[in-house]
Computed example of a mutant assay.
Amino acid sequence: MPEQHSHARPTGLAVWLVVAGVIGWWAAFSLTLEKLHALANPDAIASCDFSVLVQCSANLDSWQGSVFGFPNPILGLTGWMAPIVVGMAILARARFARWFWWCFWAGIAFAFGFVVWLIGQSIYDLHTLCPWCMVTWSVTIPTFYAVTLHLLRAGLVPVSAGVRRVADRLMAWVPLAAILSYAIILLLAQLEMNAIVNVWQTLFG
Rank of each mutant, 00 (worst) to 15 (best):
L77S: 09
L33V: 09
Q190S: 01
W173F: 11
C130F: 06
M1H: 10
T32D: 07
H5T: 12
T128Y: 01
L149F: 09
P83L: 12
R164T: 02
T11E: 12
R93E: 13
C48G: 09
W16N: 08
M193G: 01
I196S: 01
V197Y: 04
A94H: 15
A106I: 11
L31G: 08
A92Q: 11
L152V: 09
V15A: 12
G65A: 06
V15R: 07
R95K: 14
I90A: 13
L152R: 01
R9S: 13
A20S: 15
W102M: 10
W16S: 11
V18M: 13
S6T: 03
F110S: 09
F100C: 04
L152F: 09
W137P: 00
P175L: 05
C56H: 10
W63I: 14
A14G: 14
I184W: 13
Y182L: 03
G205Y: 08
H37G: 06
H5S: 14
H37Q: 07
L53W: 02
R165W: 07
A111R: 11
A195T: 05
A154C: 08
M1R: 11
I23P: 03
V116R: 03
V139K: 14
I141N: 06
V174N: 02
N198R: 13
M171L: 09
H5R: 12
Q4C: 11
T148I: 03
P131S: 05
A8V: 08
H127S: 09
A111T: 12
L17E: 11
P131E: 00
I45H: 06
P73T: 03
S57V: 05
R169A: 06
H5P: 01
L75Q: 08
F68D: 00
D43L: 11
R165E: 11
A82T: 12
P10S: 12
N41A: 06
I108P: 07
A177N: 02
V67F: 15
A177Q: 06
V15S: 06
G205W: 09
W63R: 11
L39A: 08
A28I: 02
I185S: 07
V199N: 02
A109M: 13
L36F: 00
G87A: 15
A177L: 14
A40K: 04
A111M: 14
P142R: 09
M81H: 05
P83K: 15
A82C: 13
N59D: 05
A154D: 12
S6D: 13
E34I: 02
V85M: 15
N194K: 03
W99I: 10
L191P: 00
L129K: 00
S47Y: 03
P71F: 07
W99Q: 08
V15Y: 08
M81V: 09
F68A: 05
V86S: 12
A14H: 12
W102V: 15
I179L: 12
S138W: 15
R169C: 01
L186I: 05
L31F: 08
P175T: 04
I141C: 05
L187G: 06
Q121C: 08
A14Y: 05
V19L: 14
W132L: 09
W25T: 00
C103T: 14
Y124Q: 10
T136H: 11
A111Y: 07
A94S: 14
L129F: 00
I45V: 15
I23G: 07
M88I: 11
N194P: 00
R153V: 01
V67C: 02
L77F: 10
A154E: 06
V18F: 07
T128D: 04
W63S: 13
S66K: 13
L13V: 11
S160R: 04
H127T: 04
A146T: 05
A106V: 10
